[in-house]
């Protein structure tokens, strides 16, 4: 460790012997294992890689500014979505959400985006594509999505809470429209000092997705506006 190591880099050494009882029903424990600069089209960030004791998924944090020991740090949780984030799918608003959050953080003094690799556990990606195929046939139902393994309400926020704890934050301002995320993090001892609304306009492809997300999960969304690009 170099003498001028940043507070984030110091976490790597701190966590080499970190071992706790774990967060959430899965008793997940994470360690900060690697930190590097990540200049991006959204601005200068540091990327933090986490190891966890439950699966081979490598969760990461995109960190803007000095966050260790800070209060009211803006935080966004983003769940991996291969089709949206990487392929630019219009069936969901994941890529827009991701870009909007990173763009916002790029203009701020501080901010953290947790990129949670929650997709593709087991056969998650196969079943997601099966779910899209059902949607194409108009057979997208709550029961079918449950059978395919999608249950919004039961998401475990233990990993995210532990990642925030590991980054040594005093309190966060959560960028979300989802009250479950607020509650989920608070249950694991994260101090949420405020909420930053995060809303994007609907498009003709994802309007149904957004509406059902609001109806099923109690998201704070407003659909009074016309979706972009539709006249019907």
């Amino acid at each position: 460790m170099t003498p001028d190591a940043s507070p984030l880099e110091a976490l790597v050494e701190r966590d080499q012997t970190h071992d706790c009882a774990g967060f959430g029903p899965a008793r997940t424990c994470v360690r900060v294992v690697a930190v590097a600069d990540l200049p991006s089209r959204f601005g200068d960030f540091k990327i933090v890689a986490f190891w966890n004791n439950r699966d081979a998924k490598e969760h990461i944090a995109m960190v803007r500014g000095e966050v260790c020991g800070a209060s009211d740090v803006p935080v966004r949780l983003h769940s991996e979505c291969l089709t949206g984030d990487a392929m630019g799918s219009l069936r969901c608003d994941c890529r827009d959400q991701l870009e909007a959050a990173l763009t916002t953080f790029g203009t701020m003094e501080r901010g953290i985006l947790l990129y949670l690799r929650q997709e593709g556990r087991g056969i998650g990606l196969i079943n997601k594509i099966r779910a899209y195929a059902l949607q194409d046939r108009g057979l997208d139902t709550v029961e079918a999505n449950l059978a395919l393994g999608f249950r919004d309400d039961e998401r475990d926020y233990g990993v995210a809470a532990h990642m925030l704890r590991s980054l040594d934050l005093r309190s966060i301002q959560l960028m979300t429209n989802n009250p479950n995320k607020l509650r989920g993090l608070e249950q694991h001892g994260v101090v949420v000092s405020g909420r930053i609304p995060h809303q994007l306009p609907a498009t003709r492809h994802n309007r149904f997705y957004l509406e059902t997300k609001a109806a099923r999960s109690g998201h704070y969304l407003d659909f009074t506006g016309e979706p972009e690009g539709t006249k019907d």
């Binding site: 087991g122 079943n127 395919l148 393994g149 249950r151």
Partner: peptide
């Protein structure tokens, strides 16, 4: 294979339920 993830439980309009 690959299998689905969870059983299904469908309510019918009259109140009967079918589980799979």
């Amino acid at each position: 294979s690959p299998a689905l993830a969870s059983p299904m439980l469908v309510s019918l309009p009259g109140g009967a339920r079918i589980g799979l």
